[in-house]
Design a protein around this nucleic acid. Structure first.
Lengths: 123, 123
DNA sequence: ATCATTGTATTAGTCACTTAATACAGTGGT
DNA sequence: ACCACTGTATTAAGTGACTAATACAATGAT
């Protein structure tokens, strides 16, 4: 359970992203209970207030549910989790394509480049 | 000459990226003179200090050259520009692949997804 | 020679983010 | 009934990014 936090962006936004990833990847399965705010904050070496802020946003999005005095849990709605994950993936892809286009690489070129790099990695 | 600035990251880092893009794409050709700090700042609706900060970093990287009292220009070293561009492209790609992997998509899946999305866009 | 323009530097103030130290009310197990 | 734990709220302080308003020395055109 590693938390990879950099200083180039607000911590709470990075926390949101990484908790999302833990949910999408199954590290935090649907319906499972989350550690307490204080515990998660300590795990990520972050102030409880900052973790609280990230969790509040995730609840607003419906990914996690808060039980006022007895902790939080991941939503049981697997369909919703799946959709959120797909949307994030699509966003990543179009953002990537856009950046490559700004760099002057056409869609076809981009595809060739990424294929080549994947081949190299395989070795 | 549009400047697309958001508030989710420090402005000066976004300025660096966008000026790089203008150099890589030929909007600012090799050896060409750049507008003054003040002009560029006004163009981007940003404080001159902030633009100055971005330009200082680009000079540090060698992409632009400062003539103390008579303005700035893009480096004439086309090879260096080309290499910087390639490096940026490779970084974008590996960063993208990494993100997709964290989302649980294997390299092959990622390739399929991106191909599909490119097909859709073509329509 | 004059003068607008250049990059650069300094100082001060504002704002968002983050930390720190508490405090409180409700819950659940003992 | 007690008590540790839960999420939540508040206040104060510190930090980095950004803006604003200047100032200065050097250049280049006139």
């Amino acid at each position: 359970m590693t938390w990879d936090l950099k200083s180039d962006r607000p911590l709470y936004t990075q926390l949101i992203e990484q908790i999302e990833l833990k949910i999408f990847s199954g590290t935090y399965p649907p319906g499972s209970r989350l550690p307490s705010v204080r515990d998660m904050a300590q795990e990520a070496s972050v102030n409880p207030n900052t973790m609280q802020r990230a969790l509040a946003k995730l609840e607003e999005d419906g990914l996690i549910i808060t039980h006022r005095t007895s902790g939080r849990s991941v939503t049981e709605d697997k369909e919703m989790i799946k959709n959120s994950k797909s949307k994030l993936a699509r966003d990543q892809i179009s953002e990537f394509i856009e950046k490559m286009q700004m760099l002057g690489f056409e869609k076809q070129e981009t595809l060739i480049l990424i294929t080549e790099m994947l081949e190299e990695i395989k070795k």
